[in-house]
Write a protein that binds this DNA or RNA. Structure first.
Lengths: 243, 243
DNA sequence: CAGTGGTCTAGACCACGGG
DNA sequence: CCGTGGTCTAGACCACTGG
């Protein structure tokens, strides 16, 4: 029934998610793990891995001894911060049409703070990219991405820069993206930013992300700052007790 | 070597974490999974589960084909939003001494928004709890917790209310805590809050959490709003690509 | 090529929930 | 009590890394 790639677990997960969304499971109850394993011809461990991922993203919940159930409220949550999606996808999941404007690119020298954060030599050269994301032509996210020029190995066009940074790192820097270490910082929007995000010039509180991108070798490879217009997007998160 | 409870995986995880912190592993390299399994007398799957948790919290990173390594930078990250710790623990992990002040408790009637969020009958009674968390006697977090009185089944003292809400729910409401669904909202601190958090009266941007607490049955049982003084605490998060 | 982590299997036993 | 999810085992094969 399933192929070898992507992983069985992933195929089972999306198969089950489709059935959940199409409401194939009456009364919100999902069949027992052993039954699913028999039906889909995979081992129970594979079923469990898939269900664990669906549970982590709030699609289902499980109760030992009772069963596995659809989390109707969880289905309404579109994006969760702890899982990266491109800003275009995020905007689309809120029901808007996304567009990306490349505002500017610029080369500068690094400052001591960035050198520490990205583990650079003093005076390293940096590529600074400014982008504006629109939802139905209303500006919602402004981003400022900083990449050391020394890791860029191929020539690129403005279109390549419009793509998500994870794609740019893979295609032009030969770095597989690993994860973001993010800090959430509240801010009173300065005038230049209020103008870009179409906020009232009177002081408005906004959210910003300051993120260091790490590659699969755990080396810091870029810094990304994002500024959100909270009128349209909501930043949500599922928080669970540590094990 | 290990007992039956808590889970083997959890014991292996904390055993390995101790060895990582004590720098038992030279050159940052952690032994192969099969070696660890033989040494600790557990199956490789158990080792893998433990390593997966350490990887999720940023303590280690793995590279297929190469090995498993200590994430030295990740060890510096104390608290991550996606994993719940009590605010007292969070303050302690930043190196301060925490204290909790119970500001007030109050009973009110619900409003339509809360009735929708907590799935209540119109006009339900609510217990509102206000607390202030101090770090070395400096105020850093103000919280406003709202619990429907109908789920409170035992009498409680002010001391009981000072405890984290997860404890209160378990001990006095017979509800096992499941997870928080949180929204992060930026705010310009109003004067009353600036006073409580000892912020400059001039407008300051702060972060707030608006969280709905769910129990293990996936029912919403409480609402918790938190307001942070960002001068002392940093809200961090590890973000990874979805599977 | 040897050694590593990634995936998957089949089976066992336990702990809990609800009738 | 039975059926559920939670944990653990032993073993197999694959995919990737690095010398």
């Amino acid at each position: 029934m399933f192929k070898r790639s992507p992983s069985l677990t992933e195929q089972v997960k999306s198969h089950l998610k489709k059935r959940i969304i199409n409401d194939t499971f009456e009364s919100g109850r999902i069949p027992a793990e052993t039954d699913l394993a028999a039906e889909l011809k995979v081992s129970r461990n594979t079923i469990r891995d898939a269900l664990s991922r669906l549970e982590a993203e709030g699609t289902i919940f499980r109760k030992q001894g009772a069963g596995t159930f659809v989390n109707k409220a969880g289905l309404l949550v579109k994006t969760r911060l702890e899982e990266i999606v491109s800003y275009e996808t995020m905007i689309r999941e809120y029901g808007y049409t996304p567009t990306v404007h490349l505002i500017s690119t610029e080369e500068t020298a690094s400052d001591p703070q960035l050198e520490a954060e990205l583990n650079l030599k003093p005076g390293a050269h940096l590529l600074v990219i400014r982008k504006l994301f629109m939802a139905d032509d209303k500006p919602v996210i402004f981003t400022l991405t900083t990449i050391p020029t020394e890791i860029i190995q191929l020539a690129y066009t403005p279109d390549d820069i419009r793509a998500p940074i994870t794609d740019f790192l893979r295609r032009f820097c030969n770095h597989e993206f690993g994860y973001y270490l993010s800090e959430i910082v509240p801010l009173i929007s300065p005038n230049w930013l209020a103008k870009k995000l179409d906020l009232p010039q009177s002081q408005t509180a906004i959210l910003s992300f300051e993120e260091i991108a790490y590659n699969k070798n755990n080396d810091p490879v870029a810094k990304a700052c994002s500024y959100f217009n909270n009128n349209l997007l909501h930043l949500r998160l599922i928080r669970r007790p540590g094990h």
